[in-house]
Computed example of a mutant assay.
Amino acid sequence: MVLGGSFVFEAIGTRWQIDTAAPLEPGVRAAIAGLIEDYDALYSRFRSDSAVAALAAGGGRLELPAHGAALGRLYRRLYRLTDGSMSPLVGSVLEHQGYDAHYSFTPKGPPAPARSWDAVLDWEGPVVTASGPVTLDVGAAGKGQLVDLVGGLLTDAGHTEFLVDASGDMLHSGTTALTVGLEHPYDPARVIGTVQLRGRALCASASNRRAWGDGLHHVVDARTGTSVSTVVATWVLAADTMTADALATALFLAEPDVLAEEFAFDFVQVFSDGHARFSPTLNGALFVP
């Protein structure tokens, strides 16, 4: 990719970099900033003025934009495939563990599971209805969807060669493949391998990225209320970033063969005992330690 410029900024608590073959027009930059702000105002459980904060306060009905329907369908499929381990209701688990709006990082008690989806939540199309207070957390797929929406803005503006990188959630468009290093889960200065990214999305999830105590990190099993200890890092290549992002989390909670029954993707998993596995069709390589 011959770059015409990079647009680098901070948003939703993370670093973004958008590289394009042709420079981004000011209007496109403004549209991207507005899109991200609107999405954050919907889904951030760290903002008291967000739409999900209203659900946490008293439940009720929330009408999302059209893209909310796709997010709900994806979560419902993965809730089923993981037997309830991956759930948008995991926000209450994270808050209980200390990953709350005040970043207290102090657990409030022994692990507690999330509530059952069917007991409290209805998500039909773009409409979410909660029968009582619920803390939604769509972070396992939401940032990926937001990257896709930004990519859609770029495409609509006539850009065909670009890379959107939201701190590791990446969407590539163009004919020239990029070689991307896979960060070592225990040493950010090293890589454990590389993959080729061309016209697809690549997302990663790692237990070391948002950890705040012994055995406490952001990838939790909604059925048990505990952080996953067997898998420490995953990478997924898929056609869109929302799917890649969600599957990177789902691979902490389900076997790849189970997910492959309904999704097309390539993956790498690293386990806490040091071994790794990857899909046979992966266009990349892992390094021998």
Rank of each mutant, 00 (worst) to 15 (best):
120 V>R: 11
216 L>A: 09
169 D>K: 04
141 A>M: 11
172 H>Q: 10
141 A>V: 07
219 V>M: 11
119 A>L: 10
189 A>E: 15
149 L>R: 15
145 Q>V: 03
169 D>H: 05
156 D>N: 07
210 R>G: 03
140 A>M: 06
109 G>H: 00
212 W>C: 02
211 A>D: 12
148 D>S: 08
202 L>D: 11
191 V>D: 11
132 G>S: 11
159 H>L: 08
209 R>E: 08
136 L>H: 01
177 A>F: 10
186 Y>P: 02
121 L>V: 07
187 D>L: 04
209 R>H: 06
214 D>Q: 14
112 A>R: 15
130 A>F: 04
171 L>Y: 04
160 T>A: 09
115 R>H: 03
152 G>K: 12
119 A>P: 06
174 G>H: 11
197 L>S: 02
157 A>C: 06
214 D>W: 12
115 R>G: 05
202 L>E: 08
130 A>L: 12
210 R>T: 13
129 T>P: 00
150 V>Y: 06
179 T>I: 00
158 G>T: 11
151 G>M: 12
215 G>H: 12
205 S>T: 14
206 A>P: 00
212 W>R: 04
165 D>E: 00
128 V>G: 04
208 N>D: 14
135 T>H: 13
156 D>R: 14
203 C>S: 09
147 V>Y: 01
202 L>W: 10
179 T>E: 01
142 G>S: 09
114 A>E: 08
136 L>W: 05
131 S>Y: 03
164 V>I: 15
122 D>Q: 13
134 V>N: 01
134 V>A: 04
155 T>P: 07
112 A>E: 14
203 C>P: 04
161 E>H: 13
158 G>Y: 01
183 E>P: 12
166 A>I: 02
196 Q>V: 01
140 A>C: 05
202 L>I: 08
190 R>P: 01
121 L>W: 02
187 D>P: 05
157 A>K: 11
200 R>H: 13
151 G>I: 10
121 L>N: 10
111 P>A: 09
211 A>Q: 15
121 L>F: 02
134 V>C: 04
162 F>Q: 03
116 S>I: 12
205 S>W: 07
121 L>C: 07
212 W>S: 06
198 R>Q: 15
175 T>K: 03
222 A>V: 09
207 S>Q: 14
213 G>K: 11
150 V>F: 00
197 L>V: 13
176 T>E: 11
141 A>Y: 01
202 L>Q: 14
176 T>Q: 05
115 R>I: 06
154 L>S: 13
217 H>A: 00
206 A>G: 15
190 R>L: 11
215 G>E: 10
111 P>I: 00
195 V>F: 06
210 R>N: 13
182 L>S: 08
194 T>A: 00
213 G>L: 08
219 V>N: 06
128 V>I: 15
200 R>V: 06
111 P>Q: 05
172 H>D: 06
151 G>F: 10
178 L>E: 04
124 E>L: 13
168 G>V: 07
153 L>N: 01
119 A>E: 15
193 G>W: 04
131 S>D: 10
139 G>Q: 09
212 W>E: 05
163 L>C: 02
118 D>I: 05
152 G>S: 11
175 T>Y: 00
130 A>P: 13
218 H>C: 03
114 A>C: 10
194 T>M: 04
221 D>K: 08
195 V>C: 02
117 W>F: 12
157 A>L: 11
170 M>F: 03
